[in-house]
Amino acid sequence: MKLRIRTTKLGKVRFTSHRDLARMWERAVRRIGMPVATSEGFTPRPRISFGLALPTGAESVAEYIDIDLREPLSDDRIVGLPAELTAALPTGIDVLIVAERDQRAGSLQEVVTSCTWQLWSPQLGSGHHHDACRLLEATTLELDRERKGKRSTDEVRPMILDLRVDLTPAGDRLIAELATVGRGLRPSELARLAYPDIDPLDVRVLRTHQWTDHDGNRRDVLPCELPQPTVVDASPVEVLA
């Protein structure tokens, strides 16, 4: 049996890395005694795979994890699994939905074509976000960036699929849909283009969707009702959309 799971990563736990997350999951599945299949080889590892890495420091309500089981779970157990896993995971990582994954479904890295992000900062007002949307009017956008130690100047305009401003309970935020295919565009890189006057390190980001393409129509990997506006750590900047 193969499962696909959607979770959040909110609050202080946003400062953990992708590698840290892998260890958290390995411990969580052992704590609840989930019959996870293990890889072959000298040091067998549990068969848990993670989708597109979330940058350390970013938050999300759309993280995905695939887990292969060595024996199926009862329907009852699957229904209770989100609560059971949430209790075994750190505060801020809530399991939103658990679904059985089609045997033929591609890996998360293969199927996801774009992500939607929210960007905001205490230093940014509504005007900044509206100005940022004008990046869409450009026909070409060059960005100097460094990946794995190599500097390059890339044309990134095609990676920006959409920009708009939404009023959230925490105020206006920039909503950006960015392509993930190829070298993609990171939200921090978008922030450099969108807000040239502030330090990109001061721009907070939240991933709200990971999209798959179905004959030209985009679809959430696993659609679900997002939690009601959640207040994390009572900090106003952490009120979620």
Partner: peptide
């Protein structure tokens, strides 16, 4: 956001 290994400082 400006330091290496920020998870050192979050507790949790």
């Amino acid at each position: 956001a400006r330091v290496q290994k920020p998870a050192r400082y979050i507790g949790c």
